[in-house]
Design a protein around this nucleic acid. Structure first.
Lengths: 213, 213
DNA sequence: CCCTGATGCGAGTGATCGCTCGCTTTCAAG
DNA sequence: CTTGAAAGCGAGCGATCACTCGCATCAGGG
């Protein structure tokens, strides 16, 4: 019954955790989820399996740390872009800037994104991804609250959820699948049209005046 | 080197495959992905592990069959709803009907949906889900083609992709997460507003006249 | 230089699980 | 009935892998 070391030297320990998490990320990207054994991570980190377990209680914890860092990083970047501009940009520009920031964050490490989204069982990173969403939904709600027409005010929560889920998934899917014929700018245009049309933003009428009968 | 039985009696064989796939689905739902061992599936199907391997080459194939059936079923139901009505309903009504059909299909077995989407590595059901999307994107493209305003015609593919990905993910997420404060009808309303606003459908102006500066 | 506790090591253990193989049962044809 | 091949069985093999434990190493105070 070996216990996790209790912050033995604070500094050395933090570095070790860092090394292990980095090694975990590298193994994940280079060998995939199935081949991501604790021994391989330890070797990659330049330590022995036994040492790894002085810093993490089990394999799950190592992976969780990798995933946490990943989504935290994405969250930071998006929140920064969104936070900066709340209320000081016109609607469409803000939508585009936010989507752009999200795309940029996801594009920083497509290989890791692919492993996380495609190989890991979703429930292993569900919690972190949910917290990213919660934060963005919060910001979106604050933004939308006073801007929705009076007769739709009570729907803010639903509207914010719909926007966030839709945009997030479009961004992830676009980065991973690179659908033929849709350039990065096309995607941003479409996202602005989608959200703008939904929210009735002036000057963004979706595909305007289409005959749809 | 035991080989898969070559359709030995056609009828009995088909029944066996059926029994095994059903058992696989049940084990998946009742015990989860991690506990879905071949021995358990065989036991559940009332056969021995050895017999299972006369009908499937490996574990992966059994799971693939379960997943295939699941997405095929969903695809059928959605395509039926969409196919019936292409061109004989007004835009917004069609969007709602399609979203409704998708929701209904996903709601038929939420437990299985949860296991498939949350526990299975996404790449294991990616192919089938992609084929559902391809089919719906095809139908959507056919529908949208002649209806988009001339200056957006060249975007049909992108528009169809955006609509399908957004709606699909909203539906799956709604069924699995049941977000507080969003009823089934709320969701349908929002989807209609989202898609309608995007496509500029008359009478569906999203959140109309919002001040978004 | 010795002692001691903290740190690190890595071969090994125990459990799991996909899959197999040699045997038994079934059944239809002769 | 006999016979033999097809169908079915299930104990167990072989490989993997998360995790452990007893030992080596080292730092630094005496």
């Amino acid at each position: 019954m070996r216990r996790v070391r209790k912050t033995p030297k604070q500094e050395r320990s933090r570095q070790m955790v860092e090394r292990i998490v980095t090694a975990g990320r590298e193994v994940l990207v280079e060998h995939g989820y199935d081949a991501c054994s604790t021994n391989r991570v330890a070797t990659r980190a330049g330590i022995s399996p036994g040492s790894l377990y002085q810093y993490f209680p089990d394999k799950q914890a190592v992976l969780a740390a990798v995933i946490d860092r990943y989504w935290d990083d994405v969250t930071e970047r998006v929140a920064a872009a969104l936070g900066d501009r709340v209320a000081d940009e016109a609607g469409p520009a803000m939508v585009r800037a936010t989507a752009d920031a999200l795309l940029a964050a996801l594009e920083r490490d497509p290989a890791l994104l692919r492993v996380v989204v495609r190989q890991l069982p979703a429930q292993e990173h569900e919690a972190r991804r949910a917290s990213l969403e919660r934060r963005v939904v919060g910001l979106a709600t604050a933004y939308l609250g006073p801007r929705l027409p009076r007769d739709h005010r009570r729907d803010v929560a639903a509207v914010a959820w719909v926007v966030v889920v839709a945009v997030e998934n479009l961004a992830v899917r676009w980065v991973l699948d690179q659908p033929a014929g849709i350039s990065r700018n096309d995607l941003l245009d479409q996202v602005v049209a989608l959200v703008g049309g939904y929210l009735g933003m002036p000057g963004v009428a979706g595909m305007p005046a289409g005959s749809t009968t």
